[in-house]
Design a protein around this nucleic acid. Structure first.
Lengths: 206, 206, 206, 206
DNA sequence: TAATAATCGAGACGGTACGTCCGGTCTTTTC
DNA sequence: GAAAAGACCGGACGTACCGTCTCGATTATTA
């Protein structure tokens, strides 16, 4: 008699038009009014979509935003011609790291990026399950690039072989992350250059 | 967002009993049901207090919690006899840092501490004003202790004199912070010991 | 005072079940705890209904009660087989009027009728808009019956032809109304019989 | 230790200044914002008086207004030189009644009189205790004047001796009262003149 | 090509919490 | 000891969203 709400919906019939509209509405609202004032009803109304269409496909506001944000990244990547993303290896480790970190600094200042990623990070701090998903889908792939570059540096002898690259990368990345997340200090090229300087010394052979 | 503070209330007439009850209720609820399900109404009801008594003195749930958390810290400090808090200086910088970071690891695992500070951190990520207040009142005083200890280390020649201690401390502290905030990795004594090892190498004279 | 009626709700989708439950709850509460202590929240809770469902369809507590009361009248009328309501015409005007007024006396003493109609009358005294609606929907139809009967009496020569029946009826009805509304005197069959006696003399041909 | 709130306050120490200010504030507010939006806090604030000063001397908003209204009447009476109030007796009963009723029509239209007396009447409809007090203090004295005049008319043979004046007066007064209270019809000199005409016929000897 | 079935836009529904207002009590200080 | 001031607990106000639930109207297979 009644529709079984718990039965998984039929993905093949899903409206692509609605999905895109929801992504756009979610991202736009987070930028415009902030995450806490972004509501499911607001997203639905702005996307010209029924509320149920959101609840059918996502369990929460945060999940909508996470997918919207990932999609935005993929769109941007495709638009950019999308060389398989890596940290350059010019042979000069310090220079390579400085470059990547400077690029990250730029990204952290782009409002279209900042608003949703801050929202997701905040949600993740208090919601472990989502936090882990956020890390796995967004952060970890980025960090893996550092692991790769540092391993290459170990091969060339620029970094001590017994160093764990997964921990070592945090010396560069985490300070920047904390400054950004918690407003513990200004975020500048100078700052990230200094981080590379200090940290690399600790990793280099003695 | 904030209550109409028409004609600021008379602080001298404030009920100390209510203030304490509100702090306790807020902290208990955050631990028991989590921050998002902690409501002003819930705090008021648990504290046996009218809602207006909360709105009279605090502009938001986050502000209540911030003060409650600060108060908890002060209470704990007083109870502990309250040595003026510093990082020990045994002459062995690495050992001293390892000790403090291990203590921080312990603290991060105490639920009575973890729940409210996570909640405040999360709120701060998305609410810059509160974030800065959180840092100024809670984080920065802690970080200053590292600055002091590192400066002492510069005096004894254990750290290069041109190093900026405010940045250097982030090599130890931020990786731990990020792992905690974002679940990017396990938090253990081994891990913090390793951080001290890697980072100190970068700061030591060559 | 009234809810933001932005985009009037869709009447075809209205829940009949909720509407009935709200009527019953409103009437019951007015009888049980009195009008001033009858609250929208109380009605909603007793009816097992969200507050918004009340605010969506009625602008105020008084409007809920007015409709509930009208509905009660219609229900009662249907149950009673619903002879088209008129004042009897036995040829004896005095007897007919005495009968109707005695019936009104009975009605005014029925608590299920008294509580809500008193509440509505009181509200109407102080709120002209509602007062006029109360009169138009409830009182005026009753008064019209008197007009009809008095006109018939004019045809048979029992009442002077130049008398305005709309005013004449007030000689019978208003004294009773005022005694009821303002507790200015006891309400008995004797009293209404006396009214008919005094007033009819004034209307009869000299 | 604590002040006994239930002990009757010492009337000799009562502040006349506050009493007057409360009367004026209550009447002004009822005229300006209406009875339902007139609050004890509003009266206190406007009168420059503490809330407790009101609660000490009056049990409710309606009681404040009742006394304020009675006081207003007394003030007006004193100002008007105030011969002991009666209905004139020129020998022409109909003329005398027309005159008084026309004066009442004027009074009912004066906003300074209408707002508070409507408020009190409304409250009295739903609150029997106050209603009876309202009648005893305000209405009944007025009605007694009609009783007196009608008795005089019985002495001169203008009214049948077996007529009960307390009921007879309602033929003139109640229709006007109901029109005013319930907006059941326009209130004009013509109307009251007609009432006198119709009703007097019923009371006159046959 | 028509029947069938699921998604869709829309929005009413039972709820919960919001932030405000006011009722009536209590406490402090002033007169 | 009354009065001005106003904090306090309580509770209702009217609003905003939550997540669920119908309701036609598409829309896309399946018969």
């Amino acid at each position: 008699m009644s529709t079984n709400q718990s039965a998984a919906p039929d993905v093949t019939r899903r409206s692509e038009r609605s999905r895109r509209a929801i992504y756009e509405a979610a991202l736009a609202l987070v930028v415009e009014v902030g995450y806490p004032r972004t509501t499911i009803e607001g997203i639905a109304s702005r996307a010209g979509v029924g509320k149920q269409t959101i609840y059918r496909w996502w369990p929460s506001k945060a999940d909508v935003l996470l997918e919207a944000f990932l999609d935005m990244g993929e769109q941007a990547a495709q638009a950019a011609g999308q060389v398989p993303y890596t940290i350059p290896d010019t042979g000069d480790l310090a220079a390579d790291l400085r470059l990547v970190l400077r690029a990250t600094v730029d990204e952290l200042r782009d409002p279209a990026f900042e608003a949703p990623s801050r929202a997701l990070a905040a949600e993740g701090v208090v919601n472990e399950e989502l936090g882990r998903r956020f890390v796995a889908r967004l952060l970890e792939p980025q960090l893996q690039l550092y692991v790769d570059r540092l391993r290459a540096a170990q091969d060339t002898g620029d970094v001590r072989p017994e160093v764990d690259p997964r921990i070592a990368l945090e010396l560069f990345v985490s300070p920047l992350a904390q400054r950004w997340l918690q407003y513990t200090g200004p975020i500048t090229y100078d700052y990230t250059d200094t981080l590379v300087d200090y940290a690399l010394n600790g990793l280099a052979p003695r």
